[in-house]
């Protein structure tokens, strides 16, 4: 209790001081941004943070708080919060259009179409502007250029026995993109559940997220995968040995809409963020991040023939109706039971 105590005491005081400062700082943040805009999203963490920085720079005084997780986790959290009497979220943005439809039916989404959205295709301003497609994501077939000699051309290449055990897809239980793809493909001529049975026969590996699929494609753990397009372009730009194709049956549009909730604590700020997403700056940032912009007249990312894409639109009505059935069948086919 003699010599070392002095240092200990000092350290204790120092830490106590730091703590008080920290709490005060935390309090100060809360006060200055009395109502931050809170966004629940399944968007890529670093990208949405990049948008946050740019948005906050252009809209001084508005703070954007982000809850980011997998689509299903985000929906689970929203559900729980709605049940418990209210959510913290002002806006939601994720790859599950069915859930947006559900919210529309429950009248939980506020309609708002910013003037910047004028030139965007009407089909992407859903339900009278209750939610919006602010940039386009496609599910495609991608491959590792070091491991695959012949460039694939079709979704059916995923069932090619030469890639057995080297095929990866994302889980429809976790990834909205994967769920949209599932709901679309089971109705595509020549596909259906039979295609998924063949996938299983080809020892497909079901990962939780598209990010993991893309990562494992880059590292060569997978040879061919079903994955969202921008991740592949991004990895390719960083130097990874990957590329994606536009399958001859068509790439599948993955809706990843964004909408504002009724009862938002900072509706003004939420609208400002939607305006930003539609703005030229926002759209250009999307392109920089590898996405296809929704506004015509903004040049798309390299290697994307935006106008000539073969696109399969998801049948939302079908997916909405058969949600549980699709999941149950998939669970039965691939998962624990």
């Amino acid at each position: 209790m003699r010599q070392p105590m002095e240092g200990t005491k000092l350290m204790g005081l120092l830490l106590a001081g730091l703590w008080v400062l920290g709490v005060m700082a935390a309090g100060a943040v809360e006060v200055s941004a009395a109502a931050p805009v809170t966004l629940y999203t399944s968007e890529s963490l670093d990208k949405v943070n990049e948008m946050k920085l740019d948005f906050e720079k252009r809209n001084p005084g508005v703070t954007l708080n982000i809850y980011r997780s997998g689509t299903q986790v985000v929906i689970s959290k929203l559900q729980a919060e709605f049940q418990a009497g209210g959510t913290l979220a002002d806006m939601i943005w994720m790859a599950d259009i069915d859930y947006f439809e559900d919210l529309v039916r429950k009248d939980l989404l506020a309609a708002y179409t910013p003037p910047e959205a004028d030139k965007a295709p009407a089909k992407f301003k859903y339900e009278g502007g209750r939610y919006h497609e602010v940039r386009l994501i496609f599910n495609t077939v991608a491959y590792n250029t070091l491991r695959v000699k012949t460039r694939p051309s079709s979704w059916k290449d995923l069932t090619d026995p030469q890639f057995k055990g080297k095929v990866g897809v994302a889980s429809p239980f976790y990834s909205g993109a994967a769920f949209s793809t599932l709901g679309t493909q089971v109705n595509m001529p020549g596909f259906g559940w039979d295609f998924y049975r063949k996938l299983k026969g080809n020892a497909v590996i079901v990962e939780q997220s598209n990010g993991t699929v893309a990562k494992k494609l880059a590292t060569g753990e997978f040879s061919v995968v079903s994955v969202v397009d921008f991740m592949v372009r991004e990895a390719k730009a960083a130097g990874s040995p990957v590329d994606h194709i536009w399958p001859k049956e068509g790439a599948i549009l993955v809706p990843t809409p964004v909408g504002i909730l009724k009862g938002a604590k900072n509706p003004e700020g939420a609208r400002a963020f939607l305006r930003y997403l539609y703005s030229t700056e926002g759209q250009r940032l999307f392109v920089q991040q590898g996405y296809v912009p929704v506004l015509p007249g903004i040049e798309g990312p390299k290697g994307v023939p935006a106008e000539k894409l073969e696109v399969v639109l998801t049948d939302q009505a079908y997916i909405g109706k058969h949600r549980e059935e699709l999941k149950a069948k998939y669970r039965e086919l691939f998962e624990l039971k």
Binding site: S44, Y67, S69, G211, V213
Partner: peptide, 24 residues
């Protein structure tokens, strides 16, 4: 238990990993 604005450093690592952001 985390929520928007109330992330912890452990959660950040875990979420980044979950998202497949291996390098980050």
């Amino acid at each position: 238990l985390w929520s928007a604005g109330n992330e912890t450093i452990g959660v950040m690592v875990f979420n980044m990993h979950e998202e497949g952001k291996v390098l980050l």
